[in-house]
């Protein structure tokens, strides 16, 4: 690999953007070096592909052109109104951002205090307390059964009325 075996030099050689001395040196090198010759062929192929890619011009669709013409006309006729509307929308956006910032800043200490507070403690019952609770629960259940139980249902005597014949 010599100094001339270099893709940058080959690229410049292809574009004719080398000083005459370097140009001659690269040309001589390419004759002797098969990999550089292959590389140069590949670079020429890229040039051909790109020239082909740039060779066709398609007109801009009419509806797209009309849209732009209309918008330019509108901006030319109402420059102050548009500038004002842009300024007002920018002002609304800034106000909304400021409001959001203020709300966030006000909520931040509250959130920090909530997240910093210790978790609720879990009370463990002692055996004595457990007994008292169970006793109380039993009593309460009995009372509620008495209070809320439905009234006794007595046998209902049906009064038969005799229909006139």
């Amino acid at each position: 690999m010599t100094m001339v075996c270099d893709v940058v030099a080959l690229s410049r050689y292809l574009d004719g953007e080398l000083p005459p001395e370097q140009y001659r040196a690269v040309a001589e090198h390419v004759v002797a070096c098969a990999p550089c010759r292959a590389e140069l062929t590949a670079l020429r192929e890229i040039n051909r592909l790109m020239v082909d890619w740039g060779s066709r011009n398609v007109p801009l669709p009419i509806d797209a052109a009309n849209r732009t013409r209309a918008e330019i006309g509108r901006r030319a006729r109402f420059p102050r109104l548009l500038a004002l509307s842009r300024a007002s929308s920018a002002a609304v956006g800034t106000a909304a951002a400021a409001l959001l910032l203020m709300v966030t800043m006000n909520l931040a200490p509250l959130y920090q205090s909530i997240s910093a507070s210790p978790p609720p403690r879990v009370q463990t019952r002692t055996p004595e307390l457990q007994q008292i609770t169970e006793r109380y629960q039993l009593k309460h259940n009995l009372e509620s059964m008495l209070i809320h139980s439905p009234p006794p249902v007595w046998p209902v005597q049906r009064r038969h009325t005799s229909l006139p014949d």
Binding site: R56, N57, V58, P59, L60, A64, A65, T68, R69, I72
Partner: peptide, 13 residues
């Protein structure tokens, strides 16, 4: 408008 009509196809492509 003159600039637009002159260059629109070139820029589009």
């Amino acid at each position: 408008t003159l600039v637009y009509e002159r260059h629109k196809t070139q820029i589009f492509n």
